[in-house]
Simulated assay, not measured.
Amino acid sequence: MDLGLSGKTCLVMGAGGGLGGAISQTLAREGAYVAVADIALEAAKQTADAIIASSGKSLALQWDLADLSIIPDRIAEVVEALGPIDVLVNNTGGPPPTPASGQEPELWEKHFKAMVLSVIAITDQVLPNMRSRGWGRIITSTSSGVVAPIPNLGISNALRLSLVGWSKTLAREVGPDGITANIVLPGRIATSRITFLDEQKAKRENRPISDVMRESTSSIPLQRYGEPQEYADVVAFLASTRSSYVSGSVIRVDGGMIQSI
């Protein structure tokens, strides 16, 4: 299936990690030009170098999402090197595990800025060019916690859920301009983030991590964690010309883990 991404410019945030890296490389294999952004420049370079080694076109960017002031300059770098942005993949890191109660306002403010305001501000920067060309894709990666809140991830559950309301509202606003906006939420995908959360749970409960993982996978109908590539394939479809009538949606990539309809 031709996804119609050849020659389109994609900006992927958090692209030095498992999900962002897989998304970037999958888009590049479809012929897209991919700007790879991450807080760790070396991680971004590793993803970009892998794309270039496979004859793709890529640009690595150091990008701290908590610093809103750098957004115009970073967007300008992408446009100069690869062209106007057609596809934006909003993918942010997660906050530390915490209860919902008892957290300092400064902690909420810090992660709201990096996880929510940054996504909104970056999207606002790329929308004018998308509107002028009559085509664009805004894809925002969140968490299964926006549907079924995850214990001890109070900050993540609350802040990521705000992006669902924002994306749904945005989809209606930009639809007449040929732009779609969708949320993709991962279940338990085998990344360093999931390993970290499993380790933290094992430590809190004084249990072997193997027990935690066994318990976790037993709650998933497919009886395993997902692979980053499986998540990336869904994102690539939503980025494509083939997904032209999918907008305002929340797409689960969770192996059937979330029990609600």
Results as ranks from 00 to 15, higher is better:
L82A: 11
L82Y: 09
L82C: 09
L82M: 08
G83C: 01
G83P: 00
G83S: 01
G83E: 01
P84T: 02
P84V: 05
I85W: 12
I85H: 09
I85E: 05
D86P: 00
D86V: 00
D86F: 00
V87F: 06
V87I: 15
V87G: 00
V87C: 07
V87R: 00
V87T: 02
V87Q: 02
V87D: 02
L88Q: 06
L88H: 04
L88C: 04
L88S: 07
V89F: 08
V89N: 03
V89M: 03
V89Q: 01
V89A: 00
N90A: 10
N90T: 07
N90L: 08
N91R: 04
N91V: 09
N91Q: 07
T92Y: 07
T92W: 06
G93Y: 10
G93L: 10
G93A: 14
G94N: 14
G94A: 15
G94L: 13
G94S: 14
G94Q: 14
G94F: 14
P95V: 03
P95D: 01
P95I: 02
P95F: 02
P95Q: 05
P96V: 04
P96C: 01
P96E: 08
P97G: 04
P97E: 02
P97D: 06
P97A: 06
P97F: 02
P97R: 09
T98M: 14
T98K: 15
T98E: 14
P99Q: 02
P99W: 00
P99A: 02
P99R: 01
A100D: 05
A100P: 00
A100C: 05
A100W: 05
S101Q: 06
S101G: 02
S101Y: 03
S101H: 04
G102R: 09
G102H: 07
G102S: 06
G102Q: 09
Q103W: 00
Q103A: 02
Q103R: 05
Q103L: 05
Q103Y: 01
E104V: 03
E104A: 11
E104L: 06
E104Y: 01
E104N: 06
P105M: 08
P105E: 04
P105G: 03
E106V: 14
E106I: 10
E106T: 15
L107I: 15
W108G: 07
W108L: 07
W108V: 11
E109N: 13
E109D: 15
E109A: 15
K110C: 07
K110G: 04
K110P: 03
K110F: 12
K110Y: 13
K110W: 08
H111E: 15
H111C: 10
H111I: 10
H111M: 13
F112P: 03
F112Y: 14
F112T: 15
F112S: 11
F112N: 11
F112A: 13
F112Q: 12
F112C: 13
F112V: 10
K113I: 13
K113F: 04
K113W: 06
A114V: 07
A114L: 08
A114W: 04
A114E: 03
A114Q: 09
M115H: 11
M115D: 12
M115G: 04
M115A: 01
